[in-house]
């Protein structure tokens, strides 16, 4: 397996955290992983993205130029990264915020209204976990158990009270992704 992933959206949507959870769950699955954030001036302008690699082999470059999976949380990110998505790649986007206006037919598309679903759950901040649920539904990897274990570990004791709502969001995405 060689998963090269870009997650992109606005600052505050939990992009970096979502990438971190994927990397940590991948590690718990026994894979080699890297996580690389954008920390440049664009971050201060309100957009955020990170690059995650999950691989059976030791990872050389941690930089993802041409991803095989793309998580898109806002419109500018779709325009920036969609042309780089490899043919046959997977695009997961938040259809509450993003209008898919491309003619590309050579990719696997998962449109999930993550923000609307997160409002139903009661906290917009968990849209990122809904997106992750959709990914796991599509890929069958990492396992739900490893994702939730990564979530628990990352929230730690300080934010343990946030676990339950994040788990609910993840499972909502999982269900939605399986039905989609």
């Amino acid at each position: 397996m060689f998963e090269s992933i870009i997650l992109a959206g606005f600052g505050g949507q939990g992009i970096l955290l979502a990438g971190r959870l994927l990397a940590l769950a991948g590690m718990k699955e026994g894979k080699h992983v890297t996580w690389l954030p954008s920390y440049g001036p664009e971050m201060r302008g309100g957009t955020a993205n990170c690059m995650v690699i999950i691989s059976n082999e030791p990872i050389g470059s941690p930089i993802v130029t041409f991803p095989n999976t793309l998580f898109i949380f806002n419109q500018p990110s779709l325009e920036k990264f969609l042309p780089k998505l490899l043919p046959g790649g997977l695009l997961i986007y938040d259809s509450s915020l993003v209008n898919y206006n491309s003619s590309r037919k050579d990719i696997d598309l998962v449109a999930i209204p993550a923000t609307r679903l997160s409002v139903d759950i009661g906290d917009q901040r968990v849209a990122n976990l809904i997106m992750l649920g959709a990914y796991v539904a599509r890929k069958g990897f990492p396992s739900t158990e490893k994702m939730l274990s990564a979530l628990k570990e990352t929230l730690g004791e300080k934010k343990a009270s946030m676990f339950e709502i994040n788990e609910r969001a993840f499972r909502k995405g999982l269900t939605y992704g399986k039905e989609a």
Binding site: V33, T34, L36, P37, Y39
Partner: peptide, 10 residues
């Protein structure tokens, strides 16, 4: 370099 400082890896 900044990549080594900023990236995560096991």
């Amino acid at each position: 370099d900044g990549f080594i400082g900023q990236m995560m890896e096991p």
